[in-house]
Structure formats: C-alpha cells, structure tokens
Amino acid sequence: MADAAVGEADAILDRAADWAAAGRGVALATVVKTWGSSPRAVGSQLVVDDTGAFEGSVSGGCIEGAVVIEARRTIEDGAPRLLDFGVSDEEAWEVGLACGGSIEVFVEKLA
C-alpha cells in the first residue's frame, strides 16, 4: 500500500461516515487488483454519495466518472459490483486509462 495514501484513507473513511450520518446513500469503490502500469495502488478508495459527489481516487482521474455512475447504481439497488477497466491499450484509451494499465474496482454500498 502506498503510504502517502494513509492520510487519504482516513479522509475517505471519515467522509463515508459523515455522509452516512447525514442520511445520504453512500458507496465505496476500492481498487482490488491492478495489471501493468497503474497510477493507484491496490486498496485505493473512492467514496460516492447518492448525488454523485465523490472524494478520493482509484485511477488518478482516468476512470472516476465511470466508477461514480456504477456506484450510484449500487447505492440504488444495494448490489455490489466488480468493474474491469482497460483491457487493451485501445480500450484503455477509451475509458481514459491512457497509462495503458488495467484495474479492477470493487464497488459496495455502505449499509
């Protein structure tokens, strides 16, 4: 785990708790696997609320938009999701993983 992410991990857990306490729907997205060059380490997290507000990052800005959309679905239906990004270099470019890496993100609702 990148240790620079330690302080960030606290900020994300705190934000998740704050948003939940305020009665908002909350989902957490976590990088569970990476292949090749990937900007964020396994364990990096993003917290999303039911309006699409988010904090943290799972890719350094490349795929956050797509993750937020899926996270809002998870907040709605309660079902966890396992997302894959960046299979080929070309597809990686399309979803925004210009780095050419590939990552798997686990999305779950805070319940």
Binding site: D10, L13, D14, A16, A17, A20, L28, E108, L110, A111
Partner: peptide
C-alpha cells in the same frame, strides 16, 4: 461495507 465495519476501522485508526 457494514456500518459497524466502518466504525471499527475508524476507531482503530484514531
């Protein structure tokens, strides 16, 4: 993630 899990993680970190 269960709310209880979140609470335990935050307590441990503090």
């Amino acid at each position: 993630m269960k709310a209880e899990t979140l609470a335990r993680l935050r307590a441990a970190r503090s």
